[in-house]
């Protein structure tokens, strides 16, 4: 069994190996690949036309709402993980309590659903 820090040391080694791979790839590409920038080449991609305006177009608010919903349920799973680790020792009470908690959040999801937030228009 490895110690706590040892296992993260290995992860660090993987990270270093990954960065090394990227460095080698970029280095090799810098040596091998041609570099002849032309204005037309550097222009933003557009289907055959010259691009108009800047590339950062506005995106719709609906993505933002889904971001909110995601935060709610992601925080919920942060609560779920420690609970799932220990609930067996706590018995039925823990399951019922978690059911109430999930029920409240599910109510929120149902509310969002009824409000038409989940409908992609």
């Amino acid at each position: 069994m490895e110690t706590y820090y040892q296992s993260y040391g290995v992860v660090l080694a993987v990270l270093i190996a990954g960065v090394a791979l990227v460095a080698v790839a970029f280095g090799a590409a810098a040596l091998l690949a041609p570099r002849r920038p032309l204005p037309a080449k550097l222009a933003t991609y557009e289907c055959g036309m010259d691009p108009v305006g800047e590339g950062w177009s506005q995106t719709q608010i609906r993505y933002y709402i889904f971001g909110f919903l995601f935060v709610i349920f992601d925080v919920e799973s942060v609560f779920l993980f420690p609970w799932a680790r220990v609930f067996e020792g706590l018995g039925m009470t823990a399951v019922v309590e978690m059911a109430i908690f999930i029920g409240i959040l599910a109510l929120g999801l149902v509310y969002a659903w009824r409000k038409g937030v989940l409908r992609w228009v």
């Binding site: 933003t44 557009e46 177009s57 995106t59 993505y63 971001g67 992601d74 799932a84």
Partner: peptide
Amino acid sequence: GSNYPLLGAVRSSAQIISYEIGMSLALV
């Protein structure tokens, strides 16, 4: 700094965060 990549990225983030919840529930 281009339209198509931006749309793709926004779509992708919405998709991945949505399905990540499902995935984490399966893992739980």
